[in-house]
Design a protein around this nucleic acid. Structure first.
Lengths: 329, 329
DNA sequence: CTGTTAGCGCTTTCAA
DNA sequence: TTGAAAGCGCTAACAG
């Protein structure tokens, strides 16, 4: 096995017959450094011939900042939407010369603090709030802190405000003539930062129409437990329910089935996310999606803006969340 | 905003009244270096007081190897099982002092090659095969290459061999008295590296019982298209089908429903993964799961072994994939 | 047992 | 327009 040593900028410099500084200049397109076309091409193809790619470690050490964007995942189970968001985000960041790297959150791990100190990322994107102290520490260490989804109210949203999602659900149901709504709350306490605002959105929509407050129930992902919930809604004259997400909505569907109710006849149901099983459900599930490509691109733009001190663009939130009408509502 | 400068080992050394080398020794528990208890504690709490954490960049630059394990995700949509695997893997690696970092594959990105060169990870875990050239290049650059899932036949498996999954499905169906099986192939060409071996497992199980070869059909995630498939199975006397995964199985269920067939009466169906919607389906879906915690821990162990030149432990594959019997088969 | 020293590969003044 | 040189923070010989 040929223990090939790493190709360094010195190798490139030697092959191109220039100094390492020059190599650095051309490879980085250093502003206010002009390089003769000849030298430039010579360096460029020396680099290509050698298969040179700079050491991120050295560069980071030198500049004090890497081109890595760290995304901290929450420790609750993530769905395909997150996967899609990350894919889009990664692509968008790559276009800006940044590298997205994701750290799967799993409880009982080394605290986040260690991680960002260790990686010196250009930016950190998180699904959970930082304490002010953490944020300050990171910022002063040169990290463009960005807290992602659950940021409520404080000005610009970095992702789609979850209230909007809830509002869309409720509006769809109300438009179909329902006046008494239920809300199917997830069984998993860890997602409450998402569920809370969605429910708030549903409440707001009802309030705006002077309809009664939605009756919320925690719905486990289990047909018979869900059936109990369905019966309780039934007994409170609820005719339509907004579910936290598609999985919960599927549980409601299963509950209705085992309780002997028909959907949407006896109970209309609407979910969130449009996961693949949604359209395969019985009946096919009406749901609301958000365009993750747009969110990903926007998040990337926000990160880039934050890094260069510019202010972030606005997310056209209203345009990218829409209901996918199917048969359940 | 206090632009606090990074705390370096020199700061710790100063506060502890020792040299940087000493700090390095105690913090790394350098083998064959003995440190007096007094010095050790002095250094340790100087570090604690300062909130010191070493610069990964510097360390990587110096040692030529980081403690990051890079996992390259495929560019096809990943399900919750992968999420769970990554969580477990991350936790397991952390216990070994390694940091898992995941790069979402998205098409059209900077080639993988660049990425590993840039990050100098201790190991790379991938869902897709490397070419021999890539593997050699990585290994010679000091990366303990580890190709994850689709590694077929070549000795030790790094993850559960997908043949086994298919075999389990078929065995369950056969044990229930079915003799003519169908295979529901995914519509997405990108997952064929997973689908192929699963189908092979089903075939092998049938062959072992001298049963006819399973009749394979590509099933789109769409009720009416799936209904066509179901009818074709019906016309070939297939009474039970193994689906590539739960989503495809859900499609088969939907197809049966729209074709007016009952499950499992007219057609039995078994999936793979046990995604949450599986138990909420009509009827609840029988499926086969694999214990991701075990796989995660094993993968971690493999990586660690590879890094220290030891040989990897064996994965008790047979023990960790089991069918979850519900109503569809 | 602890300190001195020499870089790892890169960027970036400062001179030439 | 290019080169020389000084480190970024850390580890690992080698001395003391």
């Amino acid at each position: 096995m040929p223990d090939t040593k790493r190709v360094t900028s010195a190798d490139v410099a030697r092959l191109a017959g220039v100094s390492r500084a020059t190599v650095s200049y051309v490879l980085n397109d250093t502003p206010r450094q002009t390089i003769s076309a000849g030298t430039r091409t010579r360096v460029l193809d020396a680099a290509a011939r050698l298969g040179y790619s700079p050491s991120a470690a050295a560069r980071t050490l030198r500049t004090g900042r890497s081109d890595v964007v760290l995304c901290l995942l929450p420790d609750w189970p993530i769905g395909p939407e997150v996967g899609s968001l990350l894919g889009n985000l990664s692509a968008a960041l790559t276009r800006h010369g940044l590298t997205l790297v994701v750290h799967p959150g799993s409880r009982g791990e080394r605290p986040v603090a260690e991680l960002w100190k260790a990686i010196t990322p250009a930016a950190v994107i998180s699904y959970t709030e930082f304490t002010d102290a953490e944020a300050a520490a990171m910022r002063s260490a040169g990290v463009a802190v960005v807290v992602a989804v659950p940021r409520r109210g404080r000005g610009r949203e970095l992702a789609v405000p979850q209230e909007l999602v809830g509002r869309r659900q409720a509006e769809h149901l109300v438009a179909a003539g329902h006046t008494r709504l239920g809300y199917a709350y997830p069984d998993d306490q860890r997602v409450r930062f998402f569920a809370e605002p969605r429910l708030a959105g549903v409440r707001a929509a009802c309030a705006a129409r002077r309809l009664p407050t939605p009756v919320g129930l925690t719905v486990p992902l289990d047909p018979s437990a869900a059936a109990d919930c369905v019966r309780r809604w039934q007994s409170t004259e609820v005719t339509a329910v907004c579910a936290y997400n598609d999985e919960v909505a599927l549980a409601v569907l299963a509950g209705a089935r085992t309780a002997g109710l028909s959907v949407p006849g006896d109970l209309a149901v609407i979910g969130v996310d449009d996961i693949p099983p949604a359209r395969l459900a019985a009946p096919p599930l009406t749901t609301v999606t958000t365009d993750q490509a747009v969110v990903g691109a926007h998040l990337a733009a926000t990160v880039v803006a934050a890094m260069s001190g510019r202010s972030a663009p606005e997310l056209p939130a209203a345009d990218i969340v829409r209901v996918v009408p199917r048969d359940s509502a």
